[in-house]
Amino acid sequence: MGFYDNRSQRTSPLLIAVISAIIGGLIVLLFTPLLIQSGVIKLPTTNQVSKAPGPTQVTTVKVNTDITKAVDKVRPAVVGVESIRKADGFFSEEERESGSGIIFEKRNGKALVVTNHHVIENSRNVRIVISTNNNTPKVVPAKILGKDKVTDLAVLEINDKYVTTVAEFGNSDVLKAGEPAIAIGNPLGLTFSQSVTVGVISSPKRTFQANEYISTDVIQTDAAINPGNSGGALINTAGQVIGINTLKIAERGVEGLGFAIPINHARPIINNLIKSGRVPRPYIGVSFLGNLYQLSDGERDLLKLPASVTGGVIVESTELASPAAKAGLKRLDVITSINGKSINSVVDLRTYLYNKTTIGSTVRLTVYRDGKKQSVELELQEAPPNLAG
């Protein structure tokens, strides 16, 4: 008696998958060329090959604006000014102060540079640092032709061997608030030489007491002016120097308050410094105790002034043979006006003398002596060099 196995024959799923893959691959190999030739399958061309994300082309843009043109025109004429001073102390080490200057004239093998008086004040040596075309700075010795503390200006002379550009002076009388202003100089020293900052003319005429001698009109700008910019150029978009950067207000919380000497005010000063090394000025020949508004009530009572007199300057003494001495001015006289212009301070008096009068002209002073008002006329003389500020 035989035994039979009634279970059906089964094929492995793995074997079926392998066989199917082989058959599918053969079909693809056989039929793909036919499908490409018939156009059913299209291969990508060279121009259609995808590229990695990012820029595919470098483009050079040539920027040429009025500002860049102006900077290119003037920048080579703006130089560094290095003042070397002998410091106080046991070892007498040298101190160096850096500022800026503007080359404005070139003749007979020499070049002239204008800068601020405070940059070269009390210096033993002054050197000019010129940037050349290959960016190698050239240091040349400078001679001080003249300086004026009152207007904070000085003129230097150098050999013109490395000078390639001379700045052109513009007209500061036609400036308008809001027009572009470009400052070029060396903020914080020669490391940042010929730095360019841009702003506007905040005010073309701002009366400012620049120092203890005089109140003067300055250009106010919001172009950044920092220590080291002193003596540098403030220019317009035509590439003309319209001002000489001189100071900024650096109080905490204050920004954008820089000032420049108007170039039209600087021109006659520069010419005098070239011609004679100083600025001839009229003077009346007095020294002052101070301003009337600074007195206490008790001190004011000693002068016996009427209550209506609130401003004036108090005479301390007169110079020998001076206009004041010849006119009979005395100690404790109070000058309250000059040519009808009220005087509230010594600065007011000097400002009027320097800006509104000339040597040899006659002025009329209103004076109170022992409380009594009188009028005094005197002829102005040229101030001696040691008294010209």
Rank of each mutant, 00 (worst) to 15 (best):
R75T: 14
H118N: 02
I130E: 03
L112G: 05
V78G: 02
N133Q: 15
Q48R: 07
K110Q: 13
P55V: 07
V155W: 04
P141A: 13
N133T: 14
V114I: 08
A70C: 04
E97A: 15
I130Q: 05
K73N: 09
F104L: 04
L156G: 04
T151V: 02
S98V: 11
S100G: 00
V61W: 05
S131K: 12
V71E: 05
I128S: 00
I102R: 02
N134S: 14
P137D: 03
G54E: 06
L145V: 08
N125Y: 14
V61Y: 09
N135D: 12
V74D: 05
T65N: 08
H117N: 15
V150D: 05
E94A: 06
E95T: 09
L156W: 02
I67R: 07
V139P: 05
R124N: 15
R96P: 03
F104G: 02
H117C: 08
K69C: 10
S131P: 06
I103S: 00
V58D: 11
V155H: 03
G109R: 00
K138C: 08
E97Y: 11
V78L: 06
I128P: 00
T56K: 15
E82S: 14
S123Q: 02
T59G: 08
D88C: 09
A77K: 04
L153P: 04
I144K: 05
Q57K: 14
R75K: 15
A77F: 02
G101T: 02
V139D: 10
F104D: 00
I120G: 00
N116S: 06
G54R: 07
V140E: 06
A154S: 06
S50V: 11
V119G: 01
P141T: 11
V78P: 01
N134G: 13
T115W: 01
N135G: 10
N108F: 13
V81M: 06
V49S: 12
E121T: 12
R107I: 15
N135Y: 09
D148Q: 01
I128A: 03
I128T: 00
K106S: 08
A87D: 14
E95P: 05
T60F: 12
T56W: 08
L153G: 04
K147S: 12
I144M: 07
R107L: 15
V78Q: 02
A70S: 05
E94N: 09
V79W: 00
V49A: 13
R96H: 07
D148M: 02
R127W: 06
E82R: 14
I144V: 14
F91S: 07
I67Y: 05
E94P: 04
E95Y: 07
H117F: 13
K149N: 12
G80I: 01
D88F: 13
V155C: 03
S83D: 00
F90V: 11
V71L: 03
A87E: 14
R96E: 06
D66A: 14
P76E: 07
V113H: 04
V155Y: 03
D66H: 12
V58Q: 13
N108M: 12
G109M: 00
V113I: 09
A154Y: 01
N108K: 14
E97F: 11
K69W: 07
S50C: 08
K51L: 12
K73V: 07
D148C: 00
T136R: 15
S123N: 03
N64Y: 11
